[in-house]
């Protein structure tokens, strides 16, 4: 292998052609729209009032958004929904991963079944649970009545509708946590567990002292991924509650969507979404540091 050929192979230009098309896509379809929306943050623009931006208005969009009650409520709702849902997803997902971890036929069938909710389009999962949770004629309250529980009017009640959104989220994305946890559990060296059991550690002790520290990095990453994805989700809320009743299930994403594409209040929507972006960027920086430290 002559070093000359190798040297030539390392030349940037010959590889640039591989990257160029994808780079163009990223610039045109991500970078440009992102910069455009940043420009909108400082513009006075409602599409209903004028076809073009009406001009620079400084920080007024940001100031007005903080004064907006619906925005503040949406932020709180988003935090409640994502926090609660991801908490349960992690606990149930990890438990299911342990429960169905052993290689046996029934387990692999169950694992396949559990996967299914995750591949359902969120928008259809929303309509599906809209029918399940219907207060009068829904299946959930019917099943609850078997054990003598008078189910609430899920989607018509401000508090219960929030619970409904959380339940849907858990139903759909616990499988994701299960898959990731199962892979992480399998990668724990058997010798470590054996050593622990020789030392006389019970199952629970082994889990706490051997498994959990090894799983912690994966679980932390999964948690951040899920929180971010859950904050971004719009489709399931759109078809399950449409933010209602009232504003009780408005999430940040739903608020921005409504402000931008239904009220065509572009400036306000851009301001809200950039505030949202700052928060997610911080999370992404954290993920990134975390992954780099790992390597």
């Amino acid at each position: 292998m002559s070093t000359k050929i190798r040297q030539k192979d390392k030349e940037l230009s010959s590889w640039l052609i591989f990257i160029l098309p994808a780079l163009l896509v990223v610039i045109l379809l991500q970078l440009y729209p992102l910069i455009y929306s940043l420009f909108l943050v400082f513009q006075d623009w409602k599409l209903t009032e004028s076809p073009e931006p009406k001009g620079f208005i400084g920080l007024w969009n940001l100031i007005n958004i903080f004064k907006n009650d619906v925005f503040r409520r949406s932020v709180v709702n988003s935090l409640i929904i994502s926090g609660t849902a991801v908490f349960f997803e992690l606990i149930i997902g990890l438990s299911l991963a342990y429960l169905f971890n052993k290689e046996r036929r029934l387990n692999s069938i169950v694992r396949t079944l559990i996967l299914l909710p995750m591949v359902i389009a969120p928008v259809a999962a929303g309509t599906l649970w809209r029918m399940m949770l219907n207060g009068r004629a829904g299946l959930v309250n019917h099943i609850l009545s078997f054990i003598n529980i008078h189910g609430p009017n899920w989607l018509a009640d401000p508090q219960w509708s929030l619970v409904s959104v959380i339940l849907l989220e858990i139903w759909q994305f616990t499988p994701f946590v299960m898959i990731i946890s199962a892979a992480a559990i399998t990668s724990i060296p058997k010798s470590l567990r054996e050593a622990a059991s020789i030392d006389g550690a019970g199952r629970l002790m082994t889990f706490k002292n051997v498994d959990l520290p090894l799983l912690a990095p994966t679980l932390a990453l999964t948690m951040i991924f899920r929180v971010l994805e859950s904050l971004l989700s719009l489709d399931s809320i759109y078809s399950l509650t449409f933010g209602g009743p009232g504003y009780s299930t408005y999430t940040l994403t739903f608020f921005i969507y409504n402000e931008g594409l239904r009220s065509f209040n572009f400036g306000q929507a851009a301001a809200a979404s950039w505030l949202f972006m700052i928060f997610t960027s911080l999370c992404i920086v954290w993920v990134f540091r975390f992954q780099n430290k790992d390597k």
């Binding site: 440009y32 729209p33 992404i284």
Partner: peptide, 11 residues
């Protein structure tokens, strides 16, 4: 992971 809702208006 950035909120996609940011870019739908530019789109």
């Amino acid at each position: 992971f950035y909120p996609k809702v940011t870019t739908i208006m530019p789109y």
